[in-house]
Structure formats: C-alpha cells, structure tokens
C-alpha cells in the first residue's frame, strides 16, 4: 500500500475486507456452484466448468459426479465492488485484497482471469480440502 493510500483513512489503513481494493479467488475452494455468478448485480462473473465422475470407492458405494472449475473471470471493468460475491460464497473461495486493481490500456485487460485472481492470495497446498491452517480466506484477508 502506498503512503498516499494509507492516508486515505484518518484511522489508519482499513482491513482488506473493508477497503475493497480488488477481488481474489482461491480456486481450490471453488465448487463452481455459480451462486456468486447469479447474485452479482452486474453479472460480471463468468465461470466455465465441467463435471467429472469419481468412481465408487467401495463395491457397495456409488459413483459421484463433481464439478471441476475450468475458468473463472471477473470483469473488473464492470464490477461495482459491492462485495456480494464474497458474502454469498458458501466456501470462502472469494476474498478481498487491499490493493486496488491498476488502470489498464484496454477493457479486455480488466477481465481478471483465474490465474490473475488466484495470484493475489497465498493458495492452500494442493490436495487439501477446505480451510487449512494459515490458508483460510479470513486469514488471507489480513
């Protein structure tokens, strides 16, 4: 955060969740449930996913179908930074980071893709499920 940004609040820098700098994604936590997509007032979240079948783990078990995330784009050119997507995500896969997204030379560059959204936060180690110590969205926000 630049000194000028810190000076924006007389009470000192706000926590990321209240500063609403820009949005970040933890792809491993995202289940492609589409709740954020449907709740976003700007319809500026775009998700592509496919389903995969996990075979039954035991002879008497059943195969499971799971959604696998392929692409996740937030069009920051449209985003009104309302935070609804962060609030509604049942899996804490979206979070605020304090530093605002920079201006770009094209509107296409304002479409933040999965890689860019994920690059803003420390990601949980691969293969871990849900919240892992030190990697919850709550901790990442600080």
């Amino acid at each position: 955060m630049s000194p000028a940004e810190a000076a924006e609040t007389s009470a000192g820098p706000l926590p990321a969740a209240r500063r609403r700098g820009t949005l970040a994604l933890i792809p491993d936590k995202c289940t492609s449930c589409m709740i954020c997509v449907r709740e976003c007032p700007d319809w500026c979240i775009h998700i592509e996913s496919h389903t995969e079948t996990i075979p039954a783990p035991t002879p008497r078990g059943r195969a499971r179908t799971v959604a696998v995330l392929d692409e996740f784009v937030i069009d920051m050119g449209h985003c009104q930074h309302c935070g609804i997507c962060v609030e509604v995500c049942p899996f804490d896969a979206l979070a605020w980071v304090a530093q605002a997204a920079p201006a770009e030379a094209s509107t296409a560059a304002l479409r933040h893709d999965r890689e860019r959204l994920a690059g803003l936060l420390p990601q949980p180690p691969r293969g871990t499920e849900g919240a892992t110590a030190g990697n919850t969205a709550e901790e990442a926000r600080r």
């Binding site: 000028a4 924006e8 050119g77 009104q80 605002a100 997204a101 920079p102 770009e104 030379a105 560059a109």
Partner: peptide, 17 residues
C-alpha cells in the same frame, strides 16, 4: 488510453493512472 476500474475508484486511482 487508460481504463480505471472501480465504482467508484478511489481518488488515488486517478493519481496512479
């Protein structure tokens, strides 16, 4: 030449742009 994201952006975003 430049598109500044935000609704609205922070004042400092104009300085940066």
């Amino acid at each position: 030449d430049r598109f500044v994201p935000g609704c609205p952006p922070r004042p400092h975003a104009l300085v940066e742009a």
